[in-house]
Every structure is written in C-alpha cells, then in structure tokens.
Computed example of a mutant assay.
Amino acid sequence: MSDHLAATRASYDAAAENYTEFVSGKLEGLPMMRAVLGAFAELVDGPVAEVGCGPGNITSHLASLGVEIRGIDLAPRMVEIARAAYPGLRFDVGSMTSLKLADGELGGLVAWYSIHHLPPGELPGVLAGFHRVLSSGGRLLIGTHAGDEERRLLTEAYGVPVRYESFIQPPERIVESIRSAGFTITAQLLEPGIRPGRSYLSVFAQKD
C-alpha cells in the first residue's frame, strides 16, 4: 500500500466516530443530493458497490430505495461502524485502487466524495478499474469536490489529528477522465460550494 493510502486509512480510522456523527442526518437537509441518489437508484439494474462508503450512511440510503448494494471502505474502523449500524448489509475493507471484484460483476458503482483523496495521476487507473468491474450498460455515479486545482494536506479534521491529502481538480478535467476511461457521460450536476472556487460535482456515466 502506498504511503498516501496508508495515511488516509489511519486518519479515517482515527476520525471514524467523529466523522460518523458529522454525517449523521445530513442527507435529510440536502434535497439535491437525495435527488441525485434517487435518480441513480431508478436507473441502475443489478448489484451495486459503493467504494469509499465510510460509515455506510449512503449505502444504507440507497438500500432503502431498493438498490442491491454493498459497501467497501479503506478504513477498517469505518467498516466496523457500518456493520454495527446496518447489520443487514454487507461491508468489506478494500481499496478502490485494487478492487477485489470480478470483471463485469456489478450493475452499478458509486464513489461518493471519495475520489478526491486520489492523486490526479492515480485517477485514470482507478476509473479503469471501475469500468472493468461493471457489466455492459452498467451505471457509474461519482460525487466529488471540484474546483480550482488545489492540493491540501490536512492535519486536523472532525476534531482529531489526521494526516491525509485532498486533491481538487476542475470539473471538466474530472468529467474528461471519466470519459477517457471508456464511459459515456449521461448527466452531470455542478452545485456551488461553500468556498470560493469550489463546487460539488455529480456525474452519471454508463459503460457502453
């Protein structure tokens, strides 16, 4: 495992309880996010994986909409919390950089605010992995931070010391990376962020 992945895993293990509290109930106040997730639930057909699922709140929400879904996260403590909170769903420790899934196994894949931890040079390989595990016609949903090119090293987050990096890329570059991985872009939504020059990007794509 690379140093940056190991640091990200250790940081989210340390912040797991506080992060879980931070995201608890947030979806109720985010109608656009619920709409995006709801649209994906209607479009997707077949088993789905959420990679970078954290404490399982988005995985659980999609399951409540009828999606056959499992969660995968890099941080073992996040997976423990998700398993305890949602015992009827499957959660596994794993990395989006090396998915232990068969070719064409999934009908859909969700990466919800997790790819921003990838250095830009690693994103094409990860998207190629997403393409590999999706069946023909499979659906991809990515939600992520976007904006002016920025690399940030965080040393404190969610009230605890951490050490992980966040890589913010322009939305058009992210969309082009998805397209270059072999996907057809079917829809995208760009919402203003809370900081100048930052946005929230949602991208729907499909494997041909």
Score class of each variant (00 low, 15 high):
135 S>E: 11
72 I>Q: 01
44 V>K: 00
197 G>H: 11
114 S>N: 02
56 G>I: 09
207 K>A: 00
120 P>Q: 04
134 L>G: 03
140 L>Q: 01
165 E>Y: 12
164 Y>A: 07
15 A>Q: 13
175 V>I: 15
109 L>Q: 03
81 I>F: 05
80 E>K: 13
172 E>V: 06
132 R>H: 03
39 A>R: 15
93 V>K: 09
152 R>Y: 11
149 E>Y: 14
140 L>T: 09
70 R>Y: 12
124 P>N: 03
61 H>L: 15
16 A>R: 13
99 L>E: 00
148 D>V: 15
71 G>H: 01
67 V>E: 03
35 A>G: 11
32 M>V: 12
88 G>N: 10
155 T>W: 08
136 S>V: 15
131 H>M: 02
66 G>K: 12
73 D>C: 03
153 L>Q: 12
87 P>S: 06
153 L>D: 03
83 R>T: 15
104 G>H: 06
204 F>W: 13
52 G>V: 11
39 A>P: 01
8 T>Q: 05
110 V>E: 02
68 E>R: 07
185 I>M: 00
63 A>F: 07
189 L>C: 09
6 A>R: 15
199 S>Y: 15
195 R>F: 08
107 G>P: 02
200 Y>T: 07
73 D>G: 06
142 I>Y: 08
122 E>H: 09
110 V>C: 03
36 V>K: 02
66 G>I: 11
64 S>A: 12
168 I>Y: 00
118 L>H: 00
117 H>F: 06
113 Y>V: 00
118 L>T: 05
178 I>Y: 09
194 I>M: 04
18 N>M: 03
208 D>A: 14
188 Q>V: 11
100 K>C: 01
49 A>W: 10
160 V>W: 01
129 G>K: 08
208 D>C: 11
198 R>Y: 10
3 D>P: 11
204 F>R: 12
148 D>P: 09
134 L>F: 01
103 D>K: 14
207 K>D: 03
105 E>Q: 08
13 D>R: 09
28 E>G: 00
9 R>N: 05
188 Q>C: 02
